[in-house]
Design a binder for these strands. Structure first.
Length: 256
DNA sequence: AACCGTAGCAACCGCGTAGTT
DNA sequence: CAACTACGCGGTTGCTACGGT
């Protein structure tokens, strides 16, 4: 038996692929990624499809720079949980773990450079943090080790970055905004985002009025999201085709 | 204008885990 | 209950845009 092994596509996604993926996610929901990858005709892995959806195509995503409030929250949560990016991301509506991870990475790079500069200039009496007697003081000496136990360069859950975070949070608390307020804010915004209509259906109201690309054929992210949210029901409604050939031909009509 | 270094971001990879058969 | 499959997470890499020299 000769199985034709089609080359799996890698690298950046094209607009056509995005459109195709969005269409199929609407139909089958954001689960069953291998299935979606297969029937969509995208020569991508399910993993790749999921990642593209989660990090880029998901209608609830915020784009653009982190707000100062978000930055503080990331600092605080990272100090608390370490590199648990997905966990942190859950507390920042519209932000993905990848985004936060990237943010932290660049953030830490800057911090490390600043620190390096501070160390290399002896005139700066570092009253902020000096190690007792160790030569390696940075990331491995953690007052409260991160859950994972691993310590890499960026895994700073408990070094002076933690102190900075703690200081920031303290500042925040002592000024006008307590951490509790932040939590409330987050939860509130989450509630605002997820609204239930009278029928108990969950609707997603995008935090910012984002327009879906016109070429997608949807007036807004909202409509896409609503389909997605209604997914569980639509899955029940749709008789999921089981015959691959049928799916493929049907997919062909979908893609044009 | 050309080159270089860096920041920011998108995507891939490997591994652990939960769910299914 | 073991084997298998799919998913999710965290780490890492590679590409591109941009600013400085």
């Amino acid at each position: 038996m000769v199985v034709q092994q089609e080359e799996v596509r890698k690298g950046p996604w094209t607009e056509q692929e995005d459109i195709l993926l969005v269409n199929f996610v609407q139909l089958f929901g954001d689960r069953r990624w291998d299935f979606i990858a297969k029937v969509s005709g995208l020569n991508r892995t399910g993993k790749s499809c999921r990642l593209r959806w989660v990090n880029y195509l998901h209608p609830g995503l915020k784009r653009g720079k982190m707000t100062p409030q978000e930055e503080r929250l990331v600092l605080e949560l990272h100090a608390k949980w370490g590199n648990r990016w997905s966990r942190i991301a859950r507390k920042l509506p519209g932000r993905t773990d990848n985004e936060i991870k990237n943010y932290w990475r660049t953030h830490m790079r800057k911090k490390a450079q600043e620190r390096k500069r501070a160390v290399s200039s002896p005139s700066s009496s570092s009253s902020n943090y000096s190690s007792p007697s160790s030569t390696v003081t940075t990331v491995d000496s953690m007052p409260c080790p991160p859950p994972q136990g691993k310590a890499s360069f960026y895994d700073t859950g408990g070094n002076d970055e933690t102190r900075v975070a703690a200081a920031l949070v303290e500042e925040y608390e002592t000024s006008c905004y307590s951490m509790d307020d932040i939590w409330k804010d987050i939860e509130l915004s989450e509630e605002k985002i997820m609204k239930q209509d009278g029928n108990g259906n969950v609707n997603f109201a995008c935090p910012s009025p984002m327009a879906a690309p016109a070429c997608w054929g949807y007036s807004s992210w909202d409509s896409i999201w609503k389909m997605d949210e209604a997914d569980e029901e639509s899955k029940m409604m749709i008789n999921l085709p089981t015959d691959d050939q049928f799916i493929s031909s049907w997919a062909a009509t979908l893609t044009g």
